[in-house]
Design a protein around this nucleic acid. Sequence first.
DNA 1: CATGGGATTGACT
DNA 2: GTCAATCCCATGC
Length: 195
Amino acid sequence: MTLGADFYARSVHRVAQDLVGCVIRHGSAAGRIVEVESYHESEPACHAFGGVTRRNRVLFGAPGMAYVYRSYGIHACLNAVADVEGVGAAVLIRALEPLEGLEGMRSRRGVARDEQLCSGPGKLTQALDISLDLNGSSLLDGPIRIVAPPNGAAAPRVVRGARIGITKAADLPWRFCDAGSAHVSRPWPAAMWAA
DNA sequence: CATGGGATTGACT
DNA sequence: GTCAATCCCATGC
């Protein structure tokens, strides 16, 4: 069941935590979300910090949109816009456990081990063939869909810690991981605790 | 119009 | 462990 607008129209941290274990799909490729981070306009690591610009305007749009941006001139990173319209907040999808379309992922990624197909925000967009032209598309009825965990799926054990790769507001514990997964982008930091 | 930085990755020492 | 690649866009002149 595709997640609806009401799922995304909540506190971005709540949305982030609840996205762990959900399944994201684009075309024939799909994976289970095992790592996310939340970003909010109130803190300087967020692209929405400082108000609306052309680059970040999607962050302030309706909940459930995809915010895709280019990182370091090379990679695309995928976010799910959260909170109500007018508030700049989103969840960065950082890692997936590959579920379907592995052959396509391997050919796009060119790596040997399946653990490396989607174990990073730039890796998973390459694996799922998600590019900048999907910025502003809808996760509710667009080409990228996020669905709730299948009925009967074991609830992930979610742990939280500090976000990765940022220089500002680096101490906020807004990274959420599935503690049981071998597909996260980095090994567990020393300080991770139950969410 | 010129400049600088970044929510990363992969290759290399 | 270090470091370059590469480009969109925000900012400043």
